[in-house]
Design a protein around this nucleic acid. Structure first.
Lengths: 231, 231
DNA sequence: CGGTGGTTTGATCAAAATCAAGTGAGGTGG
DNA sequence: CCACCTCACTTGATTTTGATCAAACCACCG
């Protein structure tokens, strides 16, 4: 969720009424079956979306960082089909749907930009499907961390070769469709091979390009304007 | 992609200029890295979206039937991040982005409805992630076929307990993140247990409710208005 | 100092992949 | 009309990947 909102758009959104809320780690912002009347813009913290199967298995669907609006879709979908959860302490700005809709009617450019954000969101889901469907455990791990690193860097929240991701191995497992035991072993392998390190929530990649190649990472799907110009 | 476009919206879209094209089976409508200037409304046939990894593994991302606009996102995302492929012979109506944008500016209701379509699309992706990430092979199969059946039925293209899905087991494997060999065995198991049959592209479920329970299917994520009213 | 949540390890097991070789039906050309 | 070709499906044997189960370990914290 980056790069497509122009500065004017951002400031237009910034002028909407909002309520800032501080959330503790592990708290949920909204749940499946809720009918929210607001969406939240992340100010700080790491937030994820997740679903739980009938058997109780959890699957993370996306990670979100400052600048994202993880539940923007609720503007047009009355009922939540998944949970939105703060993985760390987080600060979010709640904006009423009503106000977004007014802005949206008055400023078609903002409308298009917001729509575009949700479309990029969907593109990231598509790549996530490929990740859990067709890559082995090590590739999944590298690809996921590379993606998060990319987006952090694009948001000015760190370097892709070294960024902070305060997340538990069990959460990583739920994101990758693996068990936490296996995640642990995969991380050890990657560390041993010198590809990638994940210690105390700091992700380090010595050779960024190598990780990209090994994981089959192609930034196209993020639809950052820079990568599109390069294409 | 159903149920949210009102009759007026549909007829407004129907009045846009379009070009009908007949496509042979296995032909591609657009490819990753393309920059389409049009989107296609499916008139008939079965269409899918897919990505291919660096290693050449293919992952299907969604199925689309009559009434869907599988590449609507290209209206706001310049570059295709995946392929759109006709799995069977298909008839599609190409509509220029330019014309959709004009309609979109003039009729805010249509704009909202189209946006909503792409949001439902994203919701289906989310469930697809859960499917490949957290369900075993048999559940994946049942869940996928149940979903397609649901959407076919909603479109008046058959009953969920018995519908036509002209697709190869290898394609099914690519949709489920499995191998075609394993798909074959899973289908045999399901047939033997009397849960579900898939022969000559005819899907039959004797006990629809049983399949829903076994696969953990909850129609919420399809955001059909009927299921929302029921909630 | 003892809890607690997260990580690590080892042993065993199950699911699905892989490899390799059939079968079988529909379509084509001699 | 039949031989044969192709593509999809099927089967069996074997291997791999990752899951499961169970028990430490370790750091931080009240």
């Amino acid at each position: 969720m980056t790069s497509s909102l122009s500065d004017q758009d951002v400031s237009a959104i910034g002028r909407l009424p909002f309520v800032i809320k501080e959330l503790p780690a592990r708290s949920s912002i909204c749940r499946e079956r809720d009918r929210p009347v607001q969406s939240c813009l992340i100010v700080s913290g790491l937030i994820c979306r997740a679903k739980v199967t009938g058997e109780g298995a959890r699957q993370l669907l996306s990670f979100h960082i400052a600048g994202d609006i993880p539940d923007l879709q609720s503007l047009h979908l009355e009922v939540m089909d998944h949970d939105v959860i703060a993985l760390t302490e987080a600060k979010v700005a709640f904006i009423a749907h009503e106000d977004i809709r007014r802005l949206w009617r008055e400023q078609p450019d903002v409308a298009a930009a917001l729509w575009r954000e949700t479309l990029i969101d969907a593109s990231v889901f598509r790549e996530w499907i490929v990740n859990v469907g067709r890559r082995d455990a090590a590739q999944r791990m590298m690809h996921l961390l590379f993606e998060v690193g990319c987006r952090m860097q694009a948001m000015g929240l760190g370097e892709i070769g070294s960024f902070h991701m305060p997340i538990t191995q069990a959460d990583l497992a739920d994101a990758l469709g693996l068990t936490s035991v296996h995640v642990n072993r995969v991380l050890q392998d990657l560390r041993r091979e010198g590809v990638l390190d994940f210690k105390r929530s700091l992700v380090t990649m010595n050779d960024v390009e190598r990780v990209a190649v090994l994981s089959g990472f192609d930034p196209l799907y993020l639809h950052h304007s820079c990568s599109e110009e390069a294409a």
